[in-house]
C-alpha cells in the first residue's frame, strides 16, 4: 500500500514540475515578446505623456494671461485625465504580461482579448506599414482562459504577421483578424497575413521548437503558443491561405454560458 501512494505522489510531482516549467517558459517568452515590442510601447506611453505635458503647459501659459474660460480649463483637465488613464492602461497591460505566476482561469471573450493586444501593437503596426482589419463576431460565446496567456498567443501571432508582411510591397501589407463560431461548442479566431507564406515543405514546422526565420528569434514563440492553447483544451494550427500569405487558426471550446 505504501509503495502505491508514493508512486502517485511522484507522478503528481512530475506533473507539477512540467506545469511549472511550462509557466516559466511562457513567462520568459512573454518577456522576450515585450522586448521586441519595447520601441512601440515607448510610443504608446510617450503619446499620452506628451498630451498631458502639452495641455498642462498650455493651461499654465493661459493662466498667466487670464485667457482661458472656465469651460476651456475644464476641457483641458478632462483631456489630461483621459490621457493619464490611457498611460495607466498601457502600464497595466505590460505589468500583466510580465507577471510570472500563472493567472486564474476566467470567462473572457476572444474579441476583448484581441482588442487588448491590438492596443499594444498599434505603433508596431504603423512601423511595419501594416493595416489591421478586424472582423469580430458580435455575439461570440466566451471561453474559459488565462487572459494573459491568451494575450501572449495573439501577441505572438500578430507580431509574426507584421514580420511576415515585411517582404511584400507596402500596399499589400494587411493583417486580418477574424473571430467566429466553430460549431455549437467552440469558437475560433483566425490571424491572416499577406506575406510570402509558410515553408512549402510543411506549414506545421513553424510550431517546432527552435524554428525561426527571424535573425534574433529563439524559435520558441509558436511552440509555446501551441502548448498554451493545448493547455486550454484547444488547438492552434497554420496553413497557407488561398490568395497568398499565412493564416493561423486558434480554436477553443466555448463556455456553456453564452454571453452576448
Amino acid at each position: 500500500m505504501r509503495g502505491v501512494s508514493l508512486d502517485i505522489t511522484e507522478r503528481r510531482q512530475a506533473e507539477l514540475e512540467t506545469a511549472r516549467q511550462r509557466t516559466e517558459l511562457a513567462h520568459r517568452s512573454r518577456v522576450m515578446l515585450l522586448g521586441e515590442l519595447s520601441g512601440s510601447l515607448a510610443h504608446e506611453l510617450n503619446q499620452p505623456l506628451g498630451t498631458i505635458v502639452t495641455n498642462a503647459d498650455a493651461a499654465l501659459r493661459s493662466l498667466g494671461r487670464d485667457k482661458m474660460t472656465r469651460e476651456k480649463f475644464r476641457e483641458v483637465l478632462e483631456d489630461i485625465v483621459a490621457a493619464s488613464r490611457r498611460a495607466g492602461d498601457v502600464i497595466q497591460g505590460i505589468k500583466g504580461m510580465l507577471r510570472k505566476e500563472e493567472g486564474t482561469r476566467q470567462l473572457v471573450s476572444l474579441n476583448d482579448v484581441i482588442a487588448q493586444v491590438l492596443r499594444l501593437t498599434q505603433a508596431d503596426a504603423l512601423a511595419h506599414d501594416c493595416v489591421i482589419v478586424t472582423e469580430f463576431h458580435p455575439a461570440l460565446p466566451q471561453v474559459e482562459a488565462d487572459v494573459v496567456q491568451l494575450q501572449q498567443v495573439f501577441l505572438n501571432l500578430i507580431l509574426n504577421a507584421f514580420e511576415a508582411s515585411k517582404d511584400v510591397p507596402k500596399f499589400q501589407r494587411r493583417v486580418i483578424i477574424r473571430t467566429e463560431h466553430d460549431g455549437d461548442s467552440a469558437v475560433r479566431a483566425c490571424v491572416r497575413d499577406f506575406g510570402l507564406g509558410l515553408p512549402g515543405d510543411g506549414p506545421e514546422r513553424v510550431f517546432e521548437q527552435f524554428f525561426s526565420t527571424k535573425r534574433e528569434g529563439m524559435g520558441m514563440g509558436l511552440f509555446i503558443s501551441r502548448s498554451i492553447v493545448a493547455a486550454h483544451r484547444g488547438t492552434l494550427c497554420a496553413e497557407n491561405a488561398k490568395g497568398g500569405g499565412a493564416q493561423f487558426w486558434l480554436r477553443l471550446p466555448a463556455s456553456k454560458e453564452i454571453n452576448v
Binding site: T51, T54, A58, A59, M68, D79
Partner: peptide, 16 residues
Amino acid sequence: DDILMLKAIGRLLESE
C-alpha cells in the same frame, strides 16, 4: 492622428 495630442498642441499654440 491622436485627437488628444492634436487638441493639446492646438491649445499651446493658441495660448501664444
